[in-house]
C-alpha cells in the first residue's frame, strides 16, 4: 500500500512541474516574440526598399 502522505514525492513533483512550466512559458513567449519581431522588421525593410527612388 502506498502512503503518499508520508512521502515527499508530491512536493518534489510540484517543484519540478512549476519550474519546467515557468521556464517553458518564458521560452515559448521569447520564441513567439522573436519570430514576430523578425517578420515585422523584414516586412518594413522590404516596403522601405520599395519606396526608395531607383537611380
Amino acid at each position: 500500500m502506498i502512503h503518499l502522505s508520508f512521502t515527499h514525492w508530491p512536493y518534489i513533483a510540484a517543484s519540478y512541474g512549476c519550474t519546467i512550466m515557468a521556464v517553458s512559458a518564458l521560452a515559448l513567449q521569447l520564441t513567439l516574440r522573436l519570430r514576430r519581431a523578425r517578420v515585422r522588421l523584414a516586412l518594413l525593410e522590404k516596403n522601405d526598399h520599395g519606396m526608395r527612388p531607383t537611380s
Partner: peptide, 26 residues
Amino acid sequence: TGRLKAAVLESRAQQLMTRRSWGMGD
C-alpha cells in the same frame, strides 16, 4: 540575450515606422 535581441529588432522596426510616418522613407 533572446529578449534583448527581440527588443533591438522591435526598436529598429519602430524607427522605420517613425521615419515613414514623418515622410522620410524616400
